[in-house]
C-alpha cells in the first residue's frame, strides 16, 4: 500500500499524498513501447512509472512496490524473466501482478513465463482492449 506515495508525472510535477491510486511499472527497453503503454495505463487510471531494463525495474520496486508490472522479455542488462524471478524473492515481491508483454508468441515461452510466476501474458503487438482484458484477468483492474 502507498500511504504517502510520491510520483513524478511525465511533465516533471511531483504529486504527493495521493489517495490510493494504483501504480503500474512499465519495463521495456523501447521508449516507444513505454510511451504507448503509459498512455493506455493512464487511461485505465493507473499512475505509471517506467524502467528501461530489469535491473532498473528492480531498483524501482525496492523503493515502491507497484500494483502491476508490464514486463518486456528481451532487454539488455537484465531480461524480463530474470527480473521476475528476482522480484518474487524480494520482500513483498509476490504482491505485484506481473503481465509479460513480449513479441515472443511461442507457447512454450508463455508457459515458462507463467511457471516463473507471471500472472498474465500479452503477445505484442497489443492495444488498449488487450491490456485491459489482461489486467482484469490478472486481478488488478
Amino acid at each position: 500500500m502507498h500511504p504517502s506515495l510520491t510520483i513524478r508525472r511525465e511533465n516533471g510535477d511531483m504529486v504527493k499524498d495521493m489517495p490510493r491510486v494504483k501504480l503500474a511499472l512499465v519495463i521495456d527497453d523501447s521508449r516507444v513501447v513505454r510511451k504507448v503503454a503509459r498512455r493506455i495505463l493512464e487511461d485505465l487510471d493507473f499512475e505509471v512509472a517506467e524502467a528501461g531494463d530489469g535491473a532498473e525495474g528492480l531498483a524501482w520496486c525496492r523503493t515502491e512496490m507497484p500494483d502491476a508490472v508490464l514486463l518486456d522479455w528481451n532487454m539488455p542488462v537484465m531480461d524480463g524473466l530474470e527480473f521476475l524471478q528476482r522480484l518474487r524473492q524480494e520482500p513483498g515481491g509476490d504482491a505485484p501482478r506481473v503481465v509479460f508483454c513480449s513479441v515472443e508468441n511461442d507457447l512454450d515461452r508463455v508457459r515458462s513465463a507463467l511457471d516463473a510466476g507471471a500472472d498474465e501474458y500479452i503477445m505484442k503487438p497489443f492495444d488498449g482492449d488487450i491490456v485491459a482484458s489482461k489486467l482484469t484477468l490478472a486481478g488488478v483492474l
Binding site: 508463455v110 507463467l114 498474465e120 500479452i122 503477445m123 488487450i130 484477468l137
Partner: peptide, 14 residues
C-alpha cells in the same frame, strides 16, 4: 493472436 488475447487467460491459452 489478437482473438486469443480477448478474455482468454494465458494459462488457458497454453
Amino acid at each position: 493472436q489478437f482473438e486469443v488475447q480477448r478474455g482468454l487467460s494465458a494459462r488457458r491459452l497454453v
